[in-house]
Structure formats: C-alpha cells, structure tokens
Simulated scan of single mutants.
Amino acid sequence: MVAGWFDGEGDDFRLVGTRCSACGSVFFPREDTCCRNPKCEGGELASASLSRRGRIWSYTNTGYRPPSPYVTNPELPWEPYALVAVELETERIVVLGQAAPGVTVTDLEVGMEVEIVPGVLYEDAETTWTTWHWRPTGVAA
C-alpha cells in the first residue's frame, strides 16, 4: 500500500488526493509541496477524498510483466489484466488502475460507469500490498 493514497473499507473505500484552496484544483496522486496548476499563485493543499465512481476514458490489456517498482512474484507465470483510465465523476480528473479481478477488456467500453473497490496487488508470507481496482457498477464483488 502506498501510504496516504487511499483509505476506508468496503463502501467507504476511496482514493485520497489533495485540493488547492486557492484555485480548487484536485490532484492524484497526492501533492504535498505546491499547486501543480501553472495559473495558480498557490494556496494551502488539503487532503481530499475523491469520487468513488467515474466513467471509462480508455482501457487496454497488459500482455507483459511490468518492470519494478511494480511488485510481482517472478516464480509465478504472468497473468494479464485490464488497465483502466477513469474520469472521476466529480473531480473530472483521469486516474489509472487495474480492473477488478475477473473483469477483462471484453467486459469494458469507453463511457461505461465504474466504481472503485479495494484490491490486492500482491501478497507474500509477510506483507499484503493493497491497491484499488475499477469495477463496472452493478457487478458483485
């Protein structure tokens, strides 16, 4: 898990970004140094829980094991997954993430509504690396 990128559980699970008090720009991943909006003179950056839903902007299938820092078990065969770019409902920013397990590119289409759900990126005997997944709305966990 990347500390500070998401919080909550179940229906309260959300990505956490930051919002600039001066211009209202929202950032994900978090920005803790300065506003990234070049037209903004700067303001306080506050933590902001992001929308749980959005619409698919684009998607693709991963056909190869990504390089580090992506965490995988090199002893297991690579299993492709769908990578989804989602425009968040309220913030109108695009956030990338994996599709939920069992969701493939054949299940997706541009404009489809999806929701964020907690997921496991990788786990071993000592650690579980948590992440977020995008799941089409109306699909059971």
Rank of each mutant, 00 (worst) to 15 (best):
M1E: 00
A3P: 07
F6A: 13
F6P: 05
D7T: 11
D11C: 13
D12M: 10
D12G: 15
F13C: 14
G17W: 04
G17E: 09
T18N: 15
T18L: 14
C20V: 01
C20W: 00
A22I: 02
A22N: 14
G24W: 14
S25V: 06
V26N: 09
F28A: 14
F28Y: 14
F28L: 11
P29K: 08
E31R: 15
T33C: 02
C35A: 05
C35L: 14
R36N: 07
C40R: 07
E44C: 07
L45D: 07
A46N: 05
S47T: 04
S51D: 13
S51E: 04
S51H: 05
S51F: 08
R52Q: 10
R53A: 12
G54W: 02
R55A: 09
I56F: 01
W57M: 05
S58R: 00
Y59Q: 08
N61E: 09
N61L: 00
T62M: 12
G63H: 12
R65K: 02
P67Y: 02
Y70Q: 02
N73R: 03
P74C: 12
E75Q: 10
E75G: 12
E75L: 11
E75N: 13
L76C: 09
P77S: 08
P77G: 15
W78L: 08
W78T: 04
E79P: 05
P80M: 10
A82E: 08
A82R: 07
L83K: 02
V84C: 02
V84L: 06
A85K: 06
V86G: 01
V86K: 07
E87M: 04
E89F: 03
R92E: 08
I93K: 09
V94Q: 09
V95R: 06
V95M: 06
L96A: 09
G97P: 03
Q98N: 14
Q98H: 13
A99E: 10
A99N: 09
A99K: 04
A99R: 07
G102W: 03
G102L: 10
T104V: 13
T106W: 04
D107G: 15
L108S: 00
E109H: 08
G111T: 05
M112Q: 15
E113G: 04
E115S: 08
I116V: 15
I116D: 01
G119T: 01
V120W: 01
L121I: 03
L121F: 05
Y122K: 00
E123F: 10
E126S: 13
T128G: 11
T128S: 07
T130I: 02
T130R: 11
W132V: 00
H133L: 02
W134G: 00
W134E: 01
W134F: 07
P136I: 06
T137Q: 01
T137W: 01
G138W: 03
G138Y: 03
